[in-house]
């Protein structure tokens, strides 16, 4: 079980243990002392946008990632929060593809874990947030970078990130039908989870009410 081989050996009949690579040294190097058990909750206001990068009590590693982004894109990036293991930034829709490409190529986040669209009727916009993670870089394996952008809820159109992160394909398609955000350059903005004869507004919009509630 402790043996690890570098080449795929599918024809290794009989001896299963030899094709199993077991990983002893995957200790979370990125996870710093005292932050491992649970993320210490810090209040954050999703609507109040503040630039906090000048603060000194920020976690060191996360601040490094943020500083790189700010250095590259300057004022077009708003930092919503920097917490241990979690960063959230907001960019305008016109820059999102460029920022995403930088995040993939330079910062090292290689896949999207989740894409969520949230409807805010009070401010009249829809926020789309991409939770990006990394499989390839060990020091980023515990990090989630939340890349968010906002669009007008009456004309919800955003550029798709499918050219940068292939893994957003079904998530974006789900956001299209559930919240009604049209993704430009996405190959299929169409029905996915809802019934084929669905003829109502997107159900995760706030004005859609469940009957009887």
């Amino acid at each position: 079980m402790s043996k690890s081989n570098d080449s795929p050996s599918g024809n290794n009949k009989g001896d299963l243990a030899s094709i199993v690579a077991s990983n002893n040294d995957l200790s979370p190097a990125s996870v710093k002392q005292g932050e491992t058990g649970s993320i210490s909750p810090k209040p954050s206001n999703s609507n109040a946008v503040q630039v906090k990068s000048e603060k000194t009590d920020l976690p060191q590693f996360e601040r490094g990632i943020v500083d790189g982004l700010v250095l590259k894109f300057g004022d077009s990036i708003k930092i919503i929060y920097v917490k241990p293991l979690r960063i959230k930034i907001e960019v305008p829709p016109k820059d999102i593809v460029e920022v995403a490409r930088y995040i993939r190529d330079e910062a090292g986040f290689d896949h999207a874990e989740s894409v969520s669209a949230t409807d805010y009727p009070k401010t009249g916009d829809i926020e789309v947030i991409y939770h990006l993670g990394s499989y390839t870089r060990e020091n980023l394996s515990s990090q989630i970078l939340a890349l968010s952008t906002r669009t007008d809820r009456d004309n919800a159109r955003l550029p798709s990130l499918i050219q940068v992160f292939k893994s957003v394909e079904y998530h974006e398609r789900e956001s299209f039908e559930m919240v009604g955000v049209y993704f430009d350059n996405h190959p299929r903005n169409d029905r996915f989870l809802l019934p084929e004869d669905w003829a109502d507004i997107p159900p995760l919009r706030k004005e859609f009410r469940i009957k009887g509630r």
Binding site: P8, N23, N24, L26
Partner: peptide, 28 residues
């Protein structure tokens, strides 16, 4: 890819537990 949330981002008491991430390289 040896990736397991219990190892990558240990929650609750998983950082006190000694275990290996099980993975294979044959990809099939």
């Amino acid at each position: 890819v040896p990736y397991d949330i219990r190892k990558a981002e240990p929650y609750d008491i998983y950082d006190e537990i000694d275990f290996n991430v099980q993975y294979m390289k044959t990809c099939d």
